[in-house]
């Protein structure tokens, strides 16, 4: 069968796409739902980081990803893409931002263009449904704000790293001293039985190595 390759018709998104869309019950029906999502997508492009309820963030993320990937794929001279941008972006000056700022930023990006974090819910937490009432932060990658994730860079000067480093040094010195004491003991035995010479030498070479491994883990 001659079937078109789907990935060539629609650009493949680098996020999980839900098999079934959320309905977001609304008095205006599906159009009202899209209105809500348009507001979120516009907000995301405008502010680059927004905090909102998890279901809506997850839903809006898919549309934002699709919009950016189309903008990268077809550029600003493609009619359909322009219409889509016009539909999804309520504040029209942001269409310029999409093509002139976001497209150059994400051109060589090989991961998703957005990030979605689950954040703590406000107190009191209501466990009604699974991710209803949960909060999330949706952001564009490469935004100018400080990172939300803790800084996990290693800094050897922070107090606990100094203490651990010194503890490590002391442990090693202790082990070396033990090895030396062992070899001296065996050296004494050696005068009685010269056959043990080989064993001791292999012992020395293997022990310090194993100490290192133990301590770094």
């Amino acid at each position: 069968m001659n079937q078109a390759d789907v990935s060539k018709l629609v650009s493949q998104l680098r996020i999980k796409v839900n098999p079934r869309l959320r309905r977001f019950s609304n008095p205006n029906g599906p159009a009202g739902r899209l209105d809500k999502l348009r507001k979120t997508v516009t907000g995301l492009i405008k502010h680059e980081r927004i905090e909102l309820n998890y279901p809506r963030a997850d839903e809006a993320r898919m549309y934002a990803e699709r919009l950016i990937s189309d903008a990268i794929r077809y550029g600003d001279c493609h009619r359909t893409t322009m219409e889509m941008a016009d539909f999804w972006i309520i504040e029209k000056q942001l269409i310029h931002k999409l093509f002139k700022v976001l497209v150059p930023r994400f051109q060589d990006c090989n991961t998703s263009y957005t990030r979605l974090y689950k954040v703590p819910s406000p107190y009191p937490i209501i466990y009604k449904r699974e991710d209803c009432y949960r909060k999330a932060v949706l952001e564009l990658r490469g935004n100018p704000y400080p990172s939300l994730l803790p800084d996990k860079q290693y800094n050897k000067n922070i107090i606990h790293n100094i203490l651990l480093e010194e503890a490590k040094k002391e442990y090693r010195m202790q082990k070396y001293a033990e090895v030396v004491a062992n070899t001296e003991e065996k050296g004494k035995c050696q005068t009685d039985s010269p056959d043990e010479k080989l064993e001791t030498s292999s012992d020395i070479s293997s022990k310090p190595e194993s100490n290192k491994d133990e301590h770094t883990t």
């Binding site: 922070i158 107090i159 606990h160 203490l163 651990l164 010194e166 503890a167 002391e170």
Partner: peptide, 21 residues
């Protein structure tokens, strides 16, 4: 004694090594 600032979180195993020393 040993102590760590409130802002530094260390797992109990590593803290145990410091304590032992």
């Amino acid at each position: 004694g040993v102590a760590l600032p409130h802002s530094i979180i260390l797992n109990h195993f590593a803290y145990g090594l410091i304590e032992e020393r």
